[in-house]
C-alpha cells in the first residue's frame, strides 16, 4: 500500500502500523521476550506495575530497558486488581513511573478462576480515571451494551475478550463481537483468549481494529515462530475483511462454466 492508502490503526490520535498488540508476561526470559515481540511486529506492548524487589536490583534488566520507549508504546495494565480503587492507584503509579504517559489498559477482575472482568467496578474506575485525564483502553466482556456504555464514557478503545485470559479458546461469541464492532465509533480490539493464528484472523475478519494477546505467543512451544504466525494472521484477517468476503451459501455454486461441455 502507498502512504496515502495506508491502513493504520489510530488510537487516541496516534497512528500505528501494526494491529497486533502484545503482552510482555510469561516468557522464559528477557531475551525471548524481545525476540518474540520483534517477530510479532507489535508497536504497543503491555506492562504490569509491581513492587520493586528491594535489595536485589542492580543486575536484573528491567523491561523498560529491553523494550525501550523510543521503539515501543507502553500500555500499562491494572492486572491483578479486583476493585476500582486499586485499579485507579495502579494507573496513577504507572503514569508517574512513565513520566506522564497516560495511555493505559484498564482491567478490573471479578473472579479468580475465570478472570472475567467486573464491568461495574470497571466503569467506576473508568469514570474516575477519565476525569483525571487518562486515555483508557478498557478490557471488558463481550456484552454489546457494556461496550457501548464504556465508549460513551470516553474510553479511547474498547477491548472485549474472545475468551478467558490465558485460555486459548479463541473467539467464543463471534456475533457479540460483530455487534460491538458494528456499533462502535472507537477502535475495538479483541483482548484475551486468543490461542492460535486462526483465532486472530477470525477477530480481524469480524472487523476488529486489532488484537491484544500474550499467552497465545508466550505459551506456544515456539513463541518466536508463533509471534511471526500471529503477525501474518492479523494482516491476512485484516485484508480479508477489507476485501469483503463472499456470502456463505446453503448449496453449491460451480466455479467453471456449464456452456461448452464436450460430453453429455
Amino acid at each position: 500500500m502507498t502512504e496515502s492508502t495506508k491502513d493504520s490503526l489510530t488510537i487516541a490520535g496516534r497512528d500505528f502500523n501494526s494491529r497486533l498488540l502484545v503482552g510482555t508476561g510469561k516468557y522464559k526470559d528477557m531475551t525471548e521476550t524481545r525476540a518474540a515481540i520483534d517477530a510479532s511486529g507489535a508497536e504497543i506492548v503491555t506492562i504490569a506495575v509491581r513492587r520493586t524487589n528491594l535489595g536485589q536490583n542492580a543486575d536484573e534488566p528491567n523491561i523498560l530497558e529491553v523494550l525501550p520507549p523510543d521503539e515501543f508504546t507502553y500500555l500499562p495494565n491494572t492486572a491483578g486488581c479486583y476493585d476500582a480503587r486499586t485499579a485507579v492507584r495502579t494507573c496513577k503509579l504507572a503514569r508517574e513511573l512513565l513520566g506522564g504517559h497516560d495511555l493505559v489498559k484498564l482491567e478490573v477482575l471479578g473472579d479468580e478462576k475465570t478472570l472475567f472482568p467486573d464491568v461495574i467496578a470497571t466503569m467506576k474506575a473508568a469514570e474516575e480515571l477519565i476525569a483525571d485525564g487518562f486515555k483508557i483502553m478498557v478490557y471488558t466482556n463481550d456484552d454489546p451494551i457494556i461496550a457501548r456504555e464504556l465508549e460513551a464514557m470516553g474510553c479511547v478503545a474498547v477491548m472485549p475478550l474472545a475468551a478467558p485470559i490465558g485460555s486459548g479458546l479463541g473467539v467464543r461469541n463471534k456475533l457479540n463481537i460483530l455487534t460491538i464492532v458494528e456499533n462502535a465509533k472507537v477502535p475495538v480490539l479483541v483482548d484475551a483468549g486468543v490461542g492460535t493464528a486462526s483465532d486472530a484472523a477470525v477477530a480481524m475478519e469480524l472487523g476488529c481494529d486489532g488484537v491484544l494477546m500474550n499467552t497465545a505467543i508466550a505459551a506456544a512451544q515456539k513463541p518466536v515462530l508463533m509471534a511471526s504466525a500471529m503477525k501474518k494472521a492479523i494482516e491476512a484477517g485484516r485484508e480479508a475483511f477489507l476485501a469483503g468476503r463472499m456470502s456463505a451459501k446453503r448449496y453449491a455454486s460451480a466455479s467453471s462454466p456449464v456452456d461448452g461441455l464436450f460430453f453429455n
Partner: peptide
Amino acid sequence: IPRAEHASHQLHEGDCVEIVQAIGGG
C-alpha cells in the same frame, strides 16, 4: 507521591510505603 516531592517529603511513624516498577505482564 510525585517525583517532584521526593526530595522534600518526610516519613512518619507507621507510614505504609510502596515502591513499584514496571515488569512484564499481559
